[in-house]
Amino acid sequence: MAHSTTTPQPPSMHAAAPRSDDSPPQDRLLAVAAGRDVPSEVHEQVLAETPVLEIDRFNLWYGSKQALHGITMPIPNNQVTALIGPSGCGKSTLLRSVNRLNDLVQNVRITGDMRLNGDSIYDPRMDVIELRKRMGMVFQKPNPFPMSIYENVVYALRIDGESNRGVLDEVCELSLRGAALWDEVKDRLHESALGLSGGQQQRLCIARAIAAEPEVLLLDEPCSALDPIATGKVEDLIQELRGRYSVLMVTHNMQQASRTSDYTAFMYLGRLIEYGPTTDIFTKPMLRETEAYVTGRFG
């Protein structure tokens, strides 16, 4: 499996200490900003994991503007992987490319591929509806449907035509318990989901996503619209999901990434800069650029 871009670059250093002070800390970032290709530093621990999703030399253009440049990264199975990076670095675009929601956007063009448990996502014969049924997605803003809490949770089953009340009830309870929301809403399952608080709504969206038994759970900045208390609850939930679900999460919040994820990928202007175990990325990154970002010196 390729772990660096195809452009000829000197081999990356693995598990190395930050570079000495003589080289400017942001030279890779400046190179990126200048439009040049730089290699991605991918730690070995990542490559050692069983991948659930493999992103393979993935490029994406919005019209003539390229938004993703040769992203190659495996997403480990049953682990939480966080995507961090400054605004506009392509985190969300990458995430939305995984379940092909970008298909809806006009003038999008892609090259490269992604594979979900070995099945090519961008194969023309791939039924995009079936593909999306294998993934769950939670968005930046809580977006429960304008229906009851119960119907929100069992939405995926409803669209599959499931009408067995027993099955629906069971899935609803298990999913809400899984999303740590059951105790708060069990008495008002048939009231509108729009009456819940923001944090509850977001956990409801997570319950809705896990009710579909996804192979990968995609979280797009799930806490950015929430207050600190709600954020804490959602983070706790993500902690609980780890080990049972493969989670790919976009976040702006470095603390959140460090608290909740197993692996962290740092992206910058559409490129993957460094990708490795979260503890390494936050404590001893290979690149000074990464260190500069995670310590808040830029971005």
Partner: peptide
């Protein structure tokens, strides 16, 4: 985002 949520759920 509602449309995305529904499509994302495989509808």
């Amino acid at each position: 985002h509602l449309r995305s949520a529904s499509l994302g759920a495989g509808a």
